[in-house]
């Protein structure tokens, strides 16, 4: 594995805003080569926003996001393209192109970024489908696949270019426990067999504890802690324990703010 001194992902003081609402409050975040990092947090904790910044889909209001040593907000087109060829992303809903067959979806990055001949591309994309146990399904259209198969096909597309860095958004959302357990196994296998560094965003505790080397817990735009599975389990932070034990949080009502929200005329 590469030296631990240079993290593959290095985020410093990242702030994100939607309109006048601040989503991330100066987040620092680093992932080292070869680890599986799980970003955990409740709904509205900012984990999806953090992911979109990591993928370069949003420009940070302030702070920097460095992937593989490149500051992606200030990189040239060419540098950014070079980074993007080395990362793979599996989106929550799969995001397979519905107009292409499963095989063509997996082959798409290869067709666009390499000069390999068609036969090689076909074999490579079928190999990736075999990795995710979808061998033989290359001629189906995405609409003909089940939820779990869509996620696995999306994973096959994400690893088509043998990325150094793999992002996985909510791998188990909307899947039954068996299928999501299989996906967890698959993620572990990818790290071990292909030596990928993997970032998983999820709110499923069970899967997070099973696959993570380390966990980052986000809450309301702040990182509560980053640590090993055990450290997170035994942490005495109240919010983290709320998350782990599925306790509803106690919301304290600020009387003035409450009245103001009720009576305010326009936002």
């Amino acid at each position: 594995m590469t030296s631990a001194s240079a993290p593959l992902i290095d985020v410093t003081k990242l702030e994100a805003w939607y309109g006048r609402r601040r989503i991330l409050n100066g987040v620092d975040f680093a992932v080292n080569a070869g680890e599986i990092r799980v970003i955990m947090g409740g709904s509205g904790s900012g984990k999806s926003t953090l992911l979109r910044h990591l993928l370069g889909l949003h420009k940070p209001r302030s702070g920097t996001v460095r992937l593989l040593g490149v500051d992606i907000a200030r990189a040239s087109e060419r540098e950014l393209l070079a980074v993007r060829r080395q990362i793979g992303v599996s989106f929550q809903g799969g995001a397979l192109l519905t107009s292409l067959s499963v095989g063509d979806n997996v082959a798409l990055p290869l067709r666009e970024h390499t000069n390999l001949d068609e036969a090689t591309i076909r074999i490579m994309s079928r190999l990736k489908l075999e990795v995710v146990n979808l061998g033989g399904f290359q001629d189906l259209m995405p609409a003909q696949l089940s939820g779990g198969m869509v996620k696995r096909a999306a994973l096959a597309r994400a690893i088509a270019m043998d990325p150094k860095l793999l992002f996985f958004d909510e791998p188990s959302a909307g899947l039954d426990p068996v299928v999501s357990a299989e996906l967890d196994e698959l993620i572990l296998r990818l790290r071990d067999a292909l030596r990928m560094t993997i970032v998983v965003v999820t709110h499923e505790l069970e899967s997070a504890f099973k696959i993570a080397d380390s966990i980052t817990v986000l809450d309301q735009g702040d990182i509560l802690m980053t640590g090993t599975v055990d450290a997170v389990r035994h942490c005495d932070n109240e919010r983290i324990q709320d998350l782990l034990n599925r306790r509803p949080r106690e919301i304290q009502v600020d009387a003035d703010a409450y009245l103001k929200r009720l009576t305010e005329e326009a936002a």
Binding site: L55, V89, F91
Partner: peptide, 20 residues
């Protein structure tokens, strides 16, 4: 319609992250 439904289902994002 085509591009709209692609944006809604994150296909446009997926293209961007693939470097397309």
């Amino acid at each position: 319609a085509r591009i709209g439904s692609m944006s809604v289902s994150q296909e446009v994002d997926a293209l961007a992250t693939m470097g397309i």
